[in-house]
């Protein structure tokens, strides 16, 4: 694959590099890990293979060889040879074909996986791009026009699929086409469906360590009011605009301590920030709540201007939600493997 136009912020991402936080290196990885994992499954890859994370406005790229790709996550209206590229399914594309993504109509981040995965060099155990540390991906930076992305070798199932779809494209009655895709597709896990609507995104949260130190009014506002995603949001954090969330009067400062993605920290007198995949490893702001892990894929799809509402759950509910989502992913993996075997 070669990049013709880079889009707003396109990076190579996998599932991150946990294990280096003690050295100040964030976990990183795809903000919407479920979308990347699904795209990988659809092209016969390991779920953690490296793919592209597209942000707000996608890139234009050309296949230098024939490819098997899948696009999941935000709807960026990708076009291929003047036709809409079907999402959430494996797509064979002929060598020389150009794919053009547009701005995100729904969601914020789309993921493109290609059979074999992007063979970027791994740094600290991950091929994912950490732009702050300048490691992973292509020279630790977002992609630019002219970047050529080498791919690993496709799995036997993916190669078989590629051949089947290529034959289907060649046999079209209206003449040979430059792409082909099956009629079936892989929808997102049940828990994520229906929570993002045009009127807002509902995120489940559990109380943070300092929840009780916020005023009653702040805790009520968190659960009753809507918050708007601010333009300064990125992979480090989603910044929110909304009602003030005051703490009880106290001048006690917290010592710096570990924080993780999903943590909602509220700087004194400031606007809340929901930490993202590239968040700093330690922080010292009071933690009002945490977006639960099962809903981090929804957080990844919040774009500036979107409205967010929060819903309180317990730790037990949060963990059950995650385990259910992992069960759904195992079932999805099995279903896709079956489709690929049947061919």
């Amino acid at each position: 694959m070669r990049i013709l136009k880079p889009g707003l912020h396109t990076t190579i991402q996998d599932l991150g590099r946990a294990g280096w936080r003690a050295f100040g290196i964030p976990e990183g990885g795809a903000m919407d890990s479920i979308a990347l994992r699904t795209a990988n499954l659809l092209v016969g890859n390991d779920q953690g293979a490296a793919g592209l994370e597209l942000t707000l406005t996608g890139p234009q790229l050309v296949a230098e060889k024939e490819l098997l790709i899948a696009v999941c996550g935000a709807g960026m209206a990708p076009f291929i040879d003047g036709e809409p590229l079907p999402l959430e399914r494996p797509v064979w594309i002929a060598a020389g074909t150009v794919i053009t993504f547009g701005p995100a109509a729904s969601g914020c981040r789309a993921y493109l996986a290609a059979a074999g995965g992007i063979a970027a060099e791994a740094a600290l155990g991950s091929r994912g791009t950490d732009t702050r540390a300048g490691i992973g991906g292509v020279a630790g930076r977002p992609l630019r026009a002219g970047d050529v992305l080498p791919l690993g070798s496709a799995s036997p199932q993916a190669a078989a699929w590629r051949a089947t779809l290529a034959a289907r494209a060649a046999a079209k009655p209206q003449g040979r086409r430059s792409w082909a895709a099956p009629g079936w597709f892989a929808p997102p896990p049940a828990q994520l469906r229906g929570r993002a609507t045009p009127s807002g995104i509902r995120l489940r949260v559990m109380p943070g360590a300092e929840y009780g130190q916020f005023r009653e009014a702040a805790r009520t506002a968190l659960l009753r009011e809507r918050f708007r995603v601010a333009p300064a949001s990125d992979r480090m954090g989603v910044r929110l605009e909304g009602p003030p969330l005051p703490l009880e009067d106290s001048d006690q400062e917290l010592l710096s301590h570990g924080v993780i993605a999903g943590t909602i920290q509220v700087p004194r007198g400031g606007a809340p920030i929901i930490l993202g995949a590239d968040c700093q490893t330690t922080g010292g702001y009071p933690k009002l709540a945490h977006v639960i892990t099962a809903d981090l894929p929804l957080l990844a799809q919040c774009k500036p201007g979107d409205d967010i509402a929060f819903e309180l759950v317990t730790l037990a509910e949060a963990q059950r939600g995650y385990m259910e989502q992992e069960r759904d992913m195992r079932m999805l993996a099995a279903a896709i493997a079956l489709r690929m075997r049947k061919n």
């Binding site: 946990a18 294990g19 280096w20 936080r21 003690a22 976990e27 010592l255 710096s256 301590h257 570990g258 924080v259 993780i260 490893t281 330690t282 892990t293 730790l315 037990a316 963990q319 059950r320 995650y322 385990m323 992992e326």
Partner: peptide
């Protein structure tokens, strides 16, 4: 998954799906 020492704390990031849990005991991963 990760261990992060700080001034007066240690944060342990864990992988719920890999924890040995006895579901019959009703324990949650935490």
């Amino acid at each position: 998954a990760d261990v992060v020492p700080a001034y007066a704390s240690v944060t342990v990031v864990y992988d719920m799906a890999r924890l040995p849990i006895h579901e019959t005991a009703g324990a949650i991963p935490y």
